[in-house]
Amino acid sequence: MSIQHFRVALIPFFAAFCLPVFAHPETLVKVKDAEDQLGARVGYIELDLNSGKILESFRPEERFPMMSTFKVLLCGAVLSRVDAGQEQLGRRIHYSQNDLVEYSPVTEKHLTDGMTVRELCSAAITMSDNTAANLLLTTIGGPKELTAFLHNMGDHVTRLDRWEPELNEAIPNDERDTTMPAAMATTLRKLLTGELLTLASRQQLIDWMEADKVAGPLLRSALPAGWFIADKSGAGERGSRGIIAALGPDGKPSRIVVIYTTGSQATMDERNRQIAEIGASLIKHW
């Protein structure tokens, strides 16, 4: 067993022997301040990774656009098919120029040779490549099948209805392509620590998230040296922004954090800054 596999296998073990965790309302004060600064709703939840206990939450059962955070769930569904012998990570998928959609920095470079399922998941999570996500959605049967996968996990809230990039439209009061912070946090925890996926697939999923290259201005910008984070960000229309993450000190994750916002007129930089400040408060009061 590799060191990384050992780390993920012992996530519940280490967490069980940690000192009790206590909620700190100071972080919620910052979440509410972010709402004021952005002029928009902000949803927040913080779960203990081992027990699933909610440590703090704000608007945990209000719907927010998922945006690209759905790509972690998508690759979880792909990995479940791999575990069941219905898919192979090494299978190569070929596609054409007509398949390319807006923001496809990886797939646009491989029109000639195609990409493997493993490479597509890596591109979808680490670079948020939209064509990679659409190609992977095709392998599982489309958005409705991802929703069905989530329902089978016990998540009857999260739903995907459309493809990239239309799913980022974020129309107010439109339930399409949305989740709730509580539902997303619980589902992410199941994917990373539950028995739904094999140990190898859980490790692969967290490795992809740990290698995320496009979430630097968010929670990662607030992390002290030595902290662990595996995350996936999302951005959408109407001032929408979000991030889902597993993080913790001492090089291992111990909490799940989900943050979503929508309806702001603020710039992307300002949305990023507010999420980073929430992260800084979380870490300060850990």
Rank of each mutant, 00 (worst) to 15 (best):
R202E: 01
D129Q: 01
A124W: 04
R255V: 09
L192A: 08
T126W: 03
G52W: 04
K232A: 14
T126L: 13
K30L: 15
V257E: 14
V78A: 03
D36S: 12
G263W: 02
L89N: 04
T131K: 04
E210P: 06
D99L: 07
G142S: 01
E35Q: 01
P217M: 03
G242E: 13
G39F: 02
L192I: 01
K71E: 13
A77D: 05
S80P: 10
G239C: 14
I45C: 02
D99Y: 08
G248Q: 03
V106W: 08
S122Q: 12
I259W: 01
K284L: 03
A77F: 12
R63K: 03
H151L: 02
P253R: 10
W286G: 02
L74G: 01
D83H: 05
N98D: 11
A34S: 09
R202C: 03
W208H: 05
A182M: 01
I256R: 12
L188Y: 13
R202V: 04
D207H: 03
L79N: 00
L89W: 02
Y260D: 10
P249Q: 12
I125A: 09
I256F: 12
N130D: 14
S80I: 15
G142N: 02
E119R: 01
R202I: 01
L223G: 02
C121K: 01
T193M: 11
R238L: 05
I283N: 05
V31Y: 13
R92G: 13
E61D: 04
K71G: 13
G43V: 09
E195N: 00
M184I: 11
G279Y: 15
I275P: 10
N130H: 12
V101G: 12
L38N: 04
P143I: 09
L191H: 12
W286Y: 02
K71M: 15
E46V: 10
L79Y: 03
A211H: 05
L89R: 01
I229N: 09
M209T: 11
K252H: 04
T116M: 02
E195V: 00
R271N: 06
P224W: 15
G242W: 03
K144I: 11
I275W: 11
S96M: 06
K53T: 10
L73F: 03
T178K: 14
M115K: 04
R159L: 07
I229E: 08
C121M: 03
G90Y: 12
V106Y: 05
Q97P: 04
P253A: 08
A133I: 06
A211T: 12
E169H: 00
L38H: 02
N152K: 11
L135A: 05
D33Y: 14
R273H: 14
A222V: 14
A77S: 07
I125G: 08
S201C: 00
D33S: 10
A148R: 08
E195T: 03
D161G: 00
Y44E: 01
R176G: 02
A222R: 15
Y44H: 02
M153T: 04
T131L: 04
N98T: 11
N98M: 10
V101Q: 13
T187H: 01
A235D: 15
T69D: 12
A123I: 07
L219T: 13
S240D: 00
R162F: 01
M268D: 15
A185Y: 13
H151Y: 04
D99R: 09
G142K: 02
F70L: 08
G226H: 09
G251H: 08
P165M: 02
G236T: 00
L197F: 01
E119F: 01
S221T: 14
D177H: 08
G194M: 11
I278C: 12
E164H: 00
R255D: 07
G242P: 07
S221G: 15
R159S: 11
I283C: 11
L79E: 06
S240H: 08
A245M: 12
